[in-house]
Design a protein around this nucleic acid. Sequence first.
DNA 1: CAGTGGTCTAGACCACCAC
DNA 2: TGGTGGTCTAGACCACTGC
Lengths: 265, 265
Amino acid sequence: MPLGYRAIADELRARIEGGQYPPGSRFPAEDALTQEFDVSRQTVNKALLQLRAEGLIRVERGVGTTVRELPVLTSHRIRRQRITQREAGNARGAFQAELAGLGYEARSEVGISRERAPARIMEIFGLDDVPGGRSRKRDASRRETGHMAVIRLRKMFAGDVPVQLATGYYPADIAAGTSIEEQDTGPGGTYSRLAELGHAPALFSERVTLRMAADDEAAFLRLDTEQRVYEVERVARDDRGRAVEVNLIVMPAHQWQLTYEWSAE
Amino acid sequence: MPLGYRAIADELRARIEGGQYPPGSRFPAEDALTQEFDVSRQTVNKALLQLRAEGLIRVERGVGTTVRELPVLTSHRIRRQRITQREAGNARGAFQAELAGLGYEARSEVGISRERAPARIMEIFGLDDVPGGRSRKRDASRRETGHMAVIRLRKMFAGDVPVQLATGYYPADIAAGTSIEEQDTGPGGTYSRLAELGHAPALFSERVTLRMAADDEAAFLRLDTEQRVYEVERVARDDRGRAVEVNLIVMPAHQWQLTYEWSAE
DNA sequence: CAGTGGTCTAGACCACCAC
DNA sequence: TGGTGGTCTAGACCACTGC
């Protein structure tokens, strides 16, 4: 009796976990599996869909299928109670240490621009356009700082493997012309710069959702069509409640687990 | 030219979002869609797989397909900085208020038992068996409190729709015989009772992962095979660092978003 | 029993990539 | 150009549910 696609998926999963197909290696072609298991290609394909959704393998059209290279990584979203500018750096340190333990180097690339931010971001900043009224007449000056944001796009890698995409938005009337627009934001990073500008982050929030990747995200993260991403929307507010940073962090869901730690009182 | 499965999925998604198939209503059978779009049933099926993974529809074998009833819900994991026993109650209040706004009633059922907890839980409690040594000889007494846990299984509903499954584990040497073993744990809930027992929760951590649902979870949560769940592992520790509660919370990923809020310093 | 989705086949054509 | 996966068909049989 031939195997069903679930049984085939289980068998292949066991082989991957058993080391028969090592991380990063080439996975057998569908035609080969069709012959080995003596089922139709459609059945093999459905078995592979399972493994793809789980993030165990990744297919590239015209190229072939490869086994996932990295183990699941941990993203430390809060360390204990005190999240200060310095400790935000510590979280990055924890990530680097984790990767170093796995034999990888944590690396990132930053791109900076100043643009009109998406409506969702403007809304959080409290800069959304109100239909009608005065704003209509000020069309010509919309490109002024009030409606602009400094954008820091950070691409993170574990060795050569892209693992995270973070887009930081800062109100241009605060950040424009400051070192927030530099590649290297200096000691303590952007949070220290915000503090120096009189907008020290005092309150943080994160909102975690799961969704399909956009095309550009999928391309950068080398995502399979079946794979989902976590989207973490982090908002930092100063002590007057003004949003001074919105960070949209996109991570392949199969590649990460998120941890939060905090103290009572 | 016939439509592809993606186009069909897009069309059906638009109909759902446009209200043509209202929440909770019956969705057309695959055969009907096969005729309408003039494609093979396989193609219709693949289109539906997309919508199922997104949580827009849910199929039941032998019964048919229905449109998701509830909108996405928000789970407030931390409210501001101070998480005290009282405010843990507030989070529940926020959930009830949210549901009330949607016209649903928040409801839950609690089942209590005292059992040997899974190895993973025992490990967190620091009660895992060490191979060899004294513990070997104490097999007969293993069922004493040192290796037992009080288990509170909470099933949560929005109206009649199951939305969450939470399993709370408490070390039996702390919780056995206390009102933690009662249906109604009294004012302030289990955290207040732990405080009275000299084990006030002082440090919390949560670990968020995404996974397939186990069979029993899928059955209770009425999950489609394509749908994934968030698993949140919450650990509460007292001021000596001892784990006094482990809570495994399982939520359909398409049904929830998670939020965390905290203060700097 | 009728209706529903689950799964499978054998073959086909196409798009994409590396050589 | 050859190898890879993407997608589709027309038909089939099965399992499960509700009547």
